[in-house]
Each structure stands twice: as C-alpha cells, then as structure tokens.
C-alpha cells in the first residue's frame, strides 16, 4: 500500500509535467492565431502554416492531459447509486469502474499504436503550406492513451486495496 502510494505520487508528478507541456502548447497556439491575424491585417502576410500547426497541436494538447484529468478525478461520473451502497459493494463497483477504463484505453492504445506504426512506415506527412511528418503526433496520441490506461490500472489496484480518492478539483459528481 505504501509502495503503491509512492508510485501513484511519482506517476502523478510525471503526468503534471505532461499537462504543463500541454498548457504551454495551448498558450503558444493562442499566440500563433493572434500573430496570424495581426500579420494579415498589418502586412498582408499571414503566418505560413498557422492551420497545419494549430491542427497538429490539438491532439498533443488533449492526449497529454487525459491521464492527468483522470488523476484529479476530472472525468465525469455519476455516483448517485454507488454512494448509497454498503462499503464493500461500493468498493467493488469502484474497482470495476477503474478496470473498465483500463480495458477501454489499453485497447485504444494498442489500436493507436498500430495506426502510428503504419503512419511511420509510409512516412506520412502533414501537407499544406508547410510540411512536416505527422506520425510523431500519432505516436503521442497512443502514448497519451497508454498513460490513461496505466492511471486507470493504478486506480483499480488502489481502490481494491481500500484506498480512497480525493474529490480533486470538485468535478466528481455526487
């Protein structure tokens, strides 16, 4: 239990790092969009590649944050019924819920890996006013899905051992 707690904390610190990177990225996208408009109106020279960079940034932003959101209990659920259950049953339901998340996202990560590998094999490019390889973004999506699967697995073990979840940012619904 103690070891698991340490593991969860370290893993959480890593997820926070990923989240911070995603946050920096959304801020950069904001600046890019503003720069593009400014350059268009002031100099009739829009920033080349605004669309391509913006659309490739979004998957990175989302998938670097999914697991962190789960760690903070930010994904919506309904505990209307489960909070009325006796302790043991409630714990079982919680383990089941976390395992369900693990199964889905492990499956999705596996599927995402195959797509990313295929994209890498054909050297897939983002093609527009600028060009760059798109497969790194696909691998990042897969990585984010895997991070989320691991978080669900940690949470499942945690719940099975009787660990409690804080109500995080207050978005867990009761």
């Amino acid at each position: 239990m103690h070891k698991l707690e340490t593991l969860r904390r370290r893993y959480g610190a890593f997820l926070s790092l990923c989240g911070t990177a995603a946050g920096v990225l959304i801020f950069a996208v904001m600046l890019l969009v503003v720069a593009n408009v400014a350059m268009r109106y002031l100099f009739n020279r829009p920033v080349t590649g605004t669309l391509e960079l913006t659309e490739s940034a979004l998957p990175l932003i989302i998938f670097m944050s999914l697991a962190l959101t789960q760690m903070h209990g930010g994904h919506i659920k309904v505990v209307l019924l489960t909070r009325r259950l006796p302790e043991r049953l409630a714990r079982a339901a919680n383990v089941l819920a976390m395992l369900a998340g693990f199964v889905l996202f492990a499956w999705a990560a596996h599927a995402g890996w195959m797509m990313a590998a295929k994209s890498f094999a054909i050297g897939e490019l983002e093609r527009g006013s600028i060009r760059f390889p798109i497969w790194p973004v696909k691998f990042a999506v897969c990585f984010g899905l895997a991070l989320l699967a691991v978080q669900y697995l940690l949470d499942a073990v945690w719940a099975a051992l009787g660990g409690k979840f804080g109500d995080g940012s207050g978005e867990v619904m009761e």
Binding site: R45, P46, G49, T50, L51, E52, S129
Partner: peptide
Amino acid sequence: LGASPVSIA
C-alpha cells in the same frame, strides 16, 4: 503565380 497560399478548412 505570385500569390500567397492560405490553408483554410
């Protein structure tokens, strides 16, 4: 053609 390409969805 001397114009600027703009990517738009």
